[in-house]
Design a protein around this nucleic acid. Structure first.
Length: 476
RNA sequence: GUCCCCAUCGUCUAGCCCGGUUAGGACACUACCCUUUCACGGUAAGAACCGGGGUUCGAAUCCCCGUGGGGACGCCA
């Protein structure tokens, strides 16, 4: 009882936000960001994040895309408190959370409008009736005569844009002639029924909002707070980012081995910032600082380079075993890639060591198969240009001979030991470490980029190193 | 065409609300340093207040107009 008394004002004012996607296509960056901004607000305020599936378009819905929504949200770390059950997310007593299962509710609400004279039937469809004087006018753009209604402007108090006024001056369809309710109706009905307090959505919905506010008024319900967030523009060319644009799909980043934390961090910064210079920050800090007034008003262009950089930052701080596991997962997906296949057949500990060696060197997991190829096969390619350059400088043949002789008895127990050994070798001829490094690298990897040569020696082991040195020596 | 939103480096942005800054940071680009290659890291450089009016001693900041960008105008969501 006492607890209830203390909690009741909290419950009364609890923020309830929703993300309401339709399963009609791949899950893309824009949707993810809208979900994220809602999720953050719920977590920031200690409110409720609702997932509602807007599957009223029977033609275009698919179960596959529905699953993709669940998977993508979960992958990004956005759990939902109410909604369809999936893993540990979902549940709640405002369901069902799929609009395809809420037909009775919509019918009841339409009934209310019909009874109140705020809706009528025409051409087999049900229309919402605006209040005011009517007159016919020819619409040049749509090339037809339409009935306009003289109405006062609808006022939207937007949390991001301030006061926005827009005149809604035409009745609109709320139930199609086939009996299916349309988006505007179900969206508003569900937000009323689910007691949504804040509608955070893309700015592309701002023009729809006048319809929605009119519907709220028709139902005699005070509209919730609106927050229209800026859109993400495509990287190249004009217009907003759409599912078909390069880099638009969440699934793609998942497949490419991006870290979800990095993608989320990047997405947060597209239209929001903590107010200082911090960019890479833990999600807990973002939740703490995130708020609606901090959201920008202007659209943001997507930048894959900045995302890649953010991903590298996160990758760099991954524990080696986690990084190795992620790499293995990525390699396993590359079924067409011979290098990836070969790597997977290698000993697990060896694979892990190779990845640990490469972790600080690459920008993304996707670089790994090509970057580490020579660790897993003796049949690796040699870069002709690098070969000419290395073999044309100093006396590489002599260095190779020395290395071949040195390897069998050298101390390979640690990178430091190998370094010491090589330095001692160089000192005998008053040469530098670099004189051995370049030719050794060419011999064992066929290129001039890669991890430290000492690390490569240690991981490859004496046998392989010596064989490769001899092979180069024989063909040089 | 009508309506709505927006406008700081190439890009993401701080500063704007509450007028006085060498207009700051990050990505990208360039140079140098570090170094055992390549990266990472460090330092430096270049790079912006869309234009025009107004208000003011003073405007990136407030107001108006233009221009530009974006969005919406479906029995799609």
């Amino acid at each position: 009882m006492l607890i209830l008394l203390i909690l009741s004002p909290l419950i009364m004012s609890q923020v309830r936000v929703r993300f309401a996607p339709s399963p009609t296509g791949f899950f893309h960056i824009g949707s993810a960001r809208t979900a994220l901004f809602n999720w953050l607000y719920a977590r920031h305020t200690g409110g409720v994040f609702i997932l509602r599936i807007e599957d009223t378009d029977k033609e275009r819905n698919s179960e596959q895309f529905l699953q993709l929504i669940y998977e993508s949200l979960t992958w990004l770390g956005m759990n939902w408190d109410e909604g369809p059950k999936y893993g540990t997310s979902g549940g709640g007593d405002h369901g069902p959370y799929r609009q395809s299962e809420r037909g009775d509710i919509y019918q009841a609400y339409v009934g209310k409008l019909l009874a109140a004279g705020r809706a009528y039937e025409k051409d087999g469809a049900i229309w919402f009736k605006l209040l005011g004087e009517r007159h016919e006018v020819f619409d040049e753009h749509r090339k037809k005569t339409v009935t306009k209604v003289k109405t006062p402007p609808v006022v939207i108090e937007d949390q991001i844009r301030g006061r926005v006024e827009r005149v809604e001056d035409e009745d609109f369809v709320i139930v199609r002639s086939d009996g299916n309710p349309v988006f505007h109706l179900v969206n508003v009905v569900d937000d009323i029924a689910m007691q949504v307090t804040h509608i955070i959505r893309g700015e592309d919905h701002l023009s729809n909002t006048s319809k929605h506010v009119a519907l709220y008024e028709g139902f005699g319900v005070k509209p919730p707070a609106f927050a229209h967030i800026p859109l993400i523009l495509k990287q190249n060319g004009p217009g907003k980012m759409s599912k078909r644009d390069q880099g638009a799909l969440i699934e793609e980043y998942q497949k490419r081995g991006y870290l979800p934390e990095a993608l989320v961090n990047f997405l947060c910064l597209l239209g929001w910032n903590p107010g200082d210079d911090r960019e890479k920050m833990p999600i807990a800090d973002i939740i703490k600082l995130y708020d609606l007034p901090g959201i920008n008003q202007s659209n943001a262009r997507f930048d894959d380079k900045k995302l890649a950089h953010m991903n590298m930052l996160y990758l760099l701080e991954q524990p080696a075993d986690k990084f190795g596991a992620r790499a293995r997962e990525y390699f396993a997906q590359q079924t067409e890639n011979a290098a990836a296949k070969a790597a997977l057949t290698a000993d697990a500990a060896y694979f892990g060591e190779v990845m640990a060696l490469s972790q600080p060197k690459v920008k993304g997991v996707e670089e790994l198969p090509a970057y580490t190829g020579y660790f897993f096969t003796e049949d690796f390619a040699t870069d002709a240009k690098v070969r000419d350059k290395v073999m044309g400088k100093g006396d590489p043949k002599a260095r190779l001979a020395e290395l071949i002789e040195w390897v069998p008895t050298a101390d390979f127990s640690s990178d430091a030991a190998i370094e010491e050994g090589l330095k001692a070798l160089a000192a005998k001829h008053t040469l530098g470490f670099g004189d051995y490094q370049s030719v050794a690298r060419l011999a064992v990897s066929g290129t001039n980029v890669g991890p430290s040569i000492t690390g490569m020696f240690r991981v490859l082991g004496r046998g392989r190193v010596r064989a490769r040195l001899q092979k180069l020596s024989a063909t040089a």
